[in-house]
Amino acid sequence: MMHIRISLGVILLWALVALLAPVLPLSPNTIDLPQILVSGNPDEWLGYDDLGRPVFDRLLTGARTSFLVAVAVVGISLIVGSLLGTVGAYAGGWLDLVLVRVMDVFLAFPGILLAIALAGVMGPGIDNVVIALSVVSWVGYARLARAQVLSMKERDHVHAAVAIGAAPLHIVARHLLPLISAPLIVEASFGLASVVIGEAGLSFLGLGVQPPAASWGSMIRDGARYMLVAPHMVIAPGLALMAVVLSVNVLGDRLRDWLDVKSPVKGEGEKTP
């Protein structure tokens, strides 16, 4: 149970920092050239980056960027992908066929290349990164939702709901979506990490966060160049990213167990005899 609490604490801290970063007394963009790559000390315990900026301040500011991008992209992708996949699978026929073909077209492109192309066309900026990554990410959720619904819609309780005259919208909302939410949440937990990495890649190419703004991904990218001389530049954002991704995965896994009616674990301390 301890690991659940720790994970929950990490995610809450991440969210809290992301929300409060604008009002905290931080100076993430203050360049102090004599401090370049100075490692941690009692005054600045995470040290300074390659422009003499405090790594701690940038870590907190970067948390906000990574959080907003990750939540926005995963949120948009999850909603859009799940809806399209569910509707297509439940409706079947030509609508499902068109949706599958559209998904095939998206899957035919390597995801990051498509994101680069989109972000390149739309221009640099964090809002365009959210759009580009969402366009790439929705397909995974749609495919998963469709596969789940295709198996679920033949179940007895769905047939029963159809037999008593329940509306399709009601069936999808009450009898299908709750059952397919577990794998979608697990997929979202993995998606969260890949979105942070994707944002870093786009920022590195000049299509995402623009200097001097900070994100964890761009901090890792910048720090990787100084691994030999200033490992603190990459260790701090790397550990932060790892902690967040691990925590999201642990919570996602726990949530899946909790939502799965067949799971032997159902809520805190409850076990099947």
């Binding site: 963009n29 360049i31 390659d50 422009l51 590195f204 200097p211 001097p212 910048d222 160049r225």
Partner: peptide, 12 residues
């Protein structure tokens, strides 16, 4: 990355 670093200093 090195050009961005220089540009960020000039920006400042």
């Amino acid at each position: 990355p090195f050009r961005i670093r220089l540009a960020t200093i000039l920006q400042r």
